[in-house]
Amino acid sequence: MRLNVNVVVNGRSHALEVGAHETLSDVLRERLGLTGCKVACDQSVCGACTILVDGDPVSACSTFMFKVDDSKITTVEGLAAGGVLTRVQEAFLQDGAFQCGFCTSGMILLVTALLARDPNPDDATVQQWLSSNICRCTGYNSILAAVRRASAGLRTEAAA
């Protein structure tokens, strides 16, 4: 069954005709060319496909496209508007918070959502959020450092 879905992806509106059975990750990658959304486990486990739906981190691999009708979607490609990296991206770079990079888009979006809610999360909150996504390469220290750096940056910004 075909149906029409309206979404705003990275600030651009799309009126898409999709199959009812299509997932968000299929549409993002194959229709919109947003291959920054990686698919690994395809089972809501790893978070490589994490994208933001109205600001919430969601597994694109396990979300029917019809479910996000009328939503605002942010993928990693939508973060560095005008080529200026966000604070989170910058922090990931500074701390070398990735190796192969396959988890990175998802991690960056997860952290972006976390800091949008709570610019100064305590360790327990960071643990709880970050435990949602898997990185098989780094052992997580560098990613946690990046989260601290990004939130410290937000704090200084707020104080200024």
Partner: peptide, 12 residues
Amino acid sequence: WATVANLRIRMV
């Protein structure tokens, strides 16, 4: 409930 499954699943 804050520890059930993972955050992405808890959201949806």
